[in-house]
Computed example of a mutant assay.
Amino acid sequence: MRISTQAANQAALSDLMRAQREAYDAREQLASGKKAPDLKGYANSAETIIAARAAQARSESFVGANERVLNRLEVQDLAYQELTTAATDLRTALTTNDGSFMMDKVQEVFDRASAALNMRFNGSFLFGGRRTDAVPFTANSIADLQAAVPDVSATFQNAADRQTTKIEETITIDLNSTASEVGTELMASIERIADFNAGPNGPFDGQITDAQQTFLETELANIINAFDTINTAMAENGARQKQIEGSITGHEKRSDYLQIMVADIEDADMAEAATRFQQAQTAVQVSAQTFSRLSQISLLNYL
């Protein structure tokens, strides 16, 4: 009688290879923490993973960009504080009876407001509108204001349009008012005071006269309007800061959610993988022993 072990050997070898493969897969999951080494291993879920990763990347990009915008808005707030302080100081100066003191204060206000209007952030002018590479307010002195033709508006060289930025996929906001929007009224008031000082009822160099007092009382209303314009712009800047902070929080939450969603699809159950690895190792040992015994079977053992 002829005894054949070929079929048994093939079956044992197949069991051994399958056990080795299962042990390898379980070991890879334990090492990487992932269910599969690449997207092919996730079958129909691969498309969901790709879409979720892309959305997460966009959210993280918005977080980074919005944090930079928020830093800019904080610098803008400092500029607005300088402008409101300058306007307040000018209003206070016009209530004094000392003309010389008042004109010294007017010069100080001009210098302070000029610096604020030309403030920069990362090399770009804050109040330049879409034109961020050119000085928005060009007057270097009060005399430049007086010489401007047709009026002080000629000293503002900012773009007419405000600079904008996208904070959400469908939301775009203005970054800031322009120099001409917030500074024209204040500089026009300074120019009128300088012109009056140089006119027939000037100069302001001692006790304020009745004619000078009448002019200053009228000009006070203009300065209050200038202050209100600046204050409104500062409030808008504060509202933008709140909006940006909310946007950052929203994008961070969205990114976290997408990360969890992808992890639920990709991440392996480590306890389960460890159990499968142990079971697969045992199966490899048993299969190897079975294959070894079958390989040693010979007809001579039965003769």
Score class of each variant (00 low, 15 high):
58 R>C: 04
148 A>W: 13
50 I>G: 01
155 T>W: 07
103 M>G: 02
119 M>P: 01
227 F>V: 07
168 E>T: 14
3 I>F: 12
10 Q>F: 08
11 A>Q: 09
234 M>W: 04
8 A>R: 08
252 E>W: 14
96 T>I: 10
15 D>A: 15
177 S>M: 06
106 V>R: 01
140 N>R: 01
173 I>C: 05
273 A>G: 11
125 F>I: 05
150 P>C: 13
266 E>K: 15
295 S>I: 09
247 S>E: 10
265 I>E: 04
16 L>D: 02
113 A>S: 00
230 I>F: 07
67 E>L: 14
87 A>S: 03
135 V>G: 01
72 R>D: 01
111 D>S: 03
72 R>M: 03
17 M>W: 11
39 L>E: 03
302 Y>T: 11
226 A>G: 04
251 H>P: 10
141 S>M: 05
252 E>C: 12
218 T>R: 09
35 K>D: 01
218 T>D: 08
208 I>Q: 02
172 T>F: 14
122 N>D: 12
100 S>R: 09
75 V>N: 08
185 E>I: 10
48 T>K: 06
141 S>F: 05
269 D>N: 15
136 P>A: 11
60 E>F: 11
158 N>P: 09
202 G>D: 02
232 T>V: 11
265 I>C: 08
115 A>F: 02
209 T>K: 03
142 I>C: 03
98 D>C: 06
271 A>K: 13
298 S>H: 07
303 L>T: 15
69 V>M: 07
166 K>S: 15
196 F>D: 00
27 R>C: 02
98 D>Y: 08
100 S>K: 09
58 R>F: 15
193 I>G: 00
246 G>N: 12
237 N>G: 02
140 N>G: 05
302 Y>G: 07
254 R>N: 09
223 I>T: 13
272 E>R: 15
278 Q>Y: 14
104 D>K: 02
69 V>K: 01
166 K>I: 12
270 M>Q: 13
163 Q>F: 15
185 E>Q: 09
12 A>G: 05
150 P>G: 12
79 A>E: 00
24 Y>A: 04
71 N>V: 07
197 N>I: 02
239 A>V: 14
282 T>I: 15
70 L>S: 08
180 S>D: 14
293 R>D: 05
215 F>G: 00
248 I>P: 04
274 A>D: 10
255 S>E: 07
52 A>D: 04
174 D>K: 12
